[in-house]
Nucleic acid binder design. Structure first.
Lengths: 137, 137
DNA sequence: CAGTATCCTCCCAGATACTG
DNA sequence: CAGTATCTGGGAGGATACTG
């Protein structure tokens, strides 16, 4: 059994009922836990520039293991964010590219990225201050 | 330990992206892994409505363990997103509230939430289709 | 009430080896 | 090249008990 995607919580289906608060938060959370893993955002952002083969993707990301890149891509493919195209040549060639859905994710993700950029020194300082006062005790 | 990684023979086709791009992605990713955990977003969104005590927060979230809520709040406090105020009464009372920084996070998070809401049935269908065709094999 | 402290379990990432 | 298969440890998160 692969630990990657098959037993991930199934939040999307549960988005039932209620413009209620919890339903909404649960949905937000499901997206965040989906793309909040170690490699998904990086992968999506790289694919945003255009289709890419497996190993090229691996090289460009840098320190991802083969296994994790595979799992990440499978997860993204499963959710319809990435399309996988196999060319049955020898050696085999597989292209990955964003679907329309995948592209639509860029906007909100970049919004979050902008927030991160605008505030990451404030966060760093808050963190340092917190650690300092915690260390004093 | 062993740096034995492939810094050997790197043709590097699209290397011009790596500097700025990776830094940016790393920052995005750090934020996502920070708030992408199981309870942070839920907590922030609840606190967005106003200050709240520990146990009330716990009740409203519902199925969070005491330990995890504590850890979540400590993490948010450490990053300067949440302010913790202790009233040394008996019994003790502790209020949690969003800082300005915490409030500023609402916008991009809600953007992502909106994306999730707009697309979650497409995702669910993609997922179902993927699982179906995977199950056939 | 608002936490610590401890234990425990299962999941997940990484490493490694093999394959069509 | 683009994957699977398998093993392993480390850590996230839950349960429980105790405390100021």
């Amino acid at each position: 059994m692969e630990p990657g995607y098959s037993n991930v919580t199934e939040p999307v289906e549960k988005a039932e009922v209620s413009g209620h608060f919890h339903g909404r938060c649960h949905t937000v959370n499901s997206v965040l836990t989906r793309i909040g893993d170690k490699w998904s955002v990086l992968t999506v952002m790289l694919l945003a520039e255009g289709p890419c083969r497996f190993n090229e993707l691996k090289r460009r990301i840098g320190d991802v293991s083969q296994r994790m890149l595979t799992l990440t891509l499978r997860g993204l493919e499963r959710d319809g964010l990435v399309k996988r195209t196999v060319y049955p040549t020898i050696p085999p060639r597989v292209d990955y590219e964003l679907t329309d859905l995948g592209h639509s994710l860029r906007q909100p993700v970049e919004a979050l990225g902008n927030w991160a950029f605008e505030h990451h020194d404030r966060i760093a300082k808050a963190r340092a201050a917190y650690d300092r006062s915690a260390g004093e005790i």
